[in-house]
Design a protein around this nucleic acid. Structure first.
Lengths: 189, 189, 189, 189
DNA sequence: GATGAATGAGATTTCATTCAT
DNA sequence: TATGAATGAAATCTCATTCAT
């Protein structure tokens, strides 16, 4: 099944989203279409599962980072979060892009929703442990933080920034978020 | 031709991106397929043109806002920019989402590139007229500002935020960008 | 109308028989489709007329040759006939090939029939004037002669013989036909 | 797959070459279009394969005849060759005509080339075994013989000769070729 | 007359899915 | 359980022909 997922990504990359056919995926994965249909009752299910797995792994990484940053100063939290997310997207940029493109075939609201919840939970929990800050109302702050980070990274991807611009942007984004958090905190008596 | 564009959007909305067929569009537009193919030599050309037009209008709005904000304090600039962009996306949120999804079938790098250039030119020009700020090196600041704003808005859309969350987020994003710009300015003697 | 014929040939050559469209022909000819439909009520009529004209010219050349060969010895008659036909086909070999290919769309039996009749009449009349031969029954001999010559030339075309092979073949064909006629004649007491 | 070939011929006969559509062929063959496309990746491939098979069989027949005529007097060789070819074409005259017409859609040079090579090899080998003749330079003689025979038969077809004319023509063609060969031979000690 | 935009039937081809082996 | 040939609905695109201007 991992072979099938990997094959799906390969086909997505080499053939594009509208050439992503079940036959091609099966062939690349070295199984028959019939077998593939045993695992996934239809094409959507395959793509759904692929995205699910991807988001699951990503959420896992973010949770790990958050846990590891419990008790760190907020500035470090923001930095760690941005770093993790950016790295995850960049590590296999082609896969990232392939997945972005696969989504057309999908009704992925539920997926996004689940992912968002997990991330929100992890980041909120982390923020609450900051020794140097207390947030009156952490949810909107968290929402802003997360949306800004994730959105910026995605947009950076779409604009296909140069390596250099990307580095600069990551730095600036980090300062920006740190400043934001600092401005929002009520201080820790 | 406007009828065709409008029909494309309608089909995109009602049938989804993978049910967006040339026949359906033609039917909805009240023209024959043949006619459609006289205007657009193939499906991609139609989708491309649709996005091109959309981005052209959007860029136009941004340019207008920038021009109107020449000489305003940076805080106001950021606010105006966010407001314009957000409003443009929200006005017909369904269309926005439909277009986001239509793009998958496309090689839209050139489109994004053109749009980015227009926007960058407009925003940089605007920032340079700020009476209350001077920026050592305006390009990276501008890149950050624009990427953060556009990315955040897009992500907000994808998460399908509630009306309320959206308002809050817009406010927070504005403060965040204002704070960022203030932190970056070298002061105006 | 000659412009239309010429355009048809050009399109046939450059685009092939299944890309031979009325629009393309009209465009190439520098007239509108509408105008073309005034001259030719449908596509078939155009192709038919084109072939008709071509065969008419060809038959005319053969008739001229035959007339000019009245009273010549049979050997010279055969030579002249082969030479004329071969030259006519070779002069614009591409046109010849284009026309061969255009015929798919056509029910060209009548055309061939008419052409055959004209040629048969001309060649039979010519053969009858031979000073050195008398043919018991000229029709079958004539049929053989004409079918062999025309068939051989066509086949030579299809095999795309080298220039050299073509020259040799033409020479051999001539001797062959001359020998044949000599063998068939009853002598002119 | 034989069913598909047969169906193609049937459609060619009943509907004509420009009504030869993949759907019609599939329907007539009693298979789905999809199945047909599994065997032949596109329409051209089908027509190509059909002609290939036809020419293969035809070449086989000619080779057999040539082998069987090894050691026969040249006159008999010519007769046998003409007889085989004529019979092959006449057996299913409609098929022959259908195939001639199908070819227009094709780039069949390679096919013709292959066929010509096989035939040339077989006839040259045969001619060399003639007990009553030796040919100084057999290639041009062979080329002439083959081109004349094949071309004449084809042309006879195109003119749609009456049964009677056909028989006469075949006889005349045979004498003609025999006379030609006799005239070309250098004698055998 | 001449024009050429509009038409829409119809052609080719793809591909998710099934099911007999 | 695995296979992959068969299916056929549906998509894209073409082009002969018409007809309002």
């Amino acid at each position: 099944m991992d072979a099938i997922f990997e094959a799906t990504i390969q086909v997505l990359l080499s053939a594009g989203p509208h050439r992503l056919t079940t036959t091609r995926v099966a062939e690349r994965a070295g199984v028959s279409v019939g077998t593939m249909y045993q695992y996934f009752p239809h094409k959507q299910a395959l793509i759904y599962a692929l995205n699910e797995r991807y988001l699951d792994v990503l959420a896992g990484k973010i949770e790990a980072t958050c846990r590891a940053s419990h008790g760190a100063p907020v500035g470090r939290m923001a930095e760690a979060l941005i770093d993790t997310y950016w790295r995850a997207k960049t590590e296999r940029a082609d896969v990232t892009r392939a997945l972005y493109r696969s989504v057309v075939e999908l009704d992925n609201e539920a997926l996004i929703e689940t992912f968002a919840r997990r991330v929100d939970a992890a980041t909120v929990a982390m923020l609450r442990t900051a020794p140097d800050a207390r947030f009156e109302n952490v949810e909107p702050i968290n929402l802003t933080l997360v949306t800004v980070i994730f959105g910026t990274v995605r947009n950076a991807f779409e604009r296909q920034l140069s390596e250099n611009d990307a580095v600069v942007l990551q730095g600036q984004l980090t300062s920006m978020c740190q400043a934001y958090l600092k401005a929002q905190m009520t201080g820790k008596a």
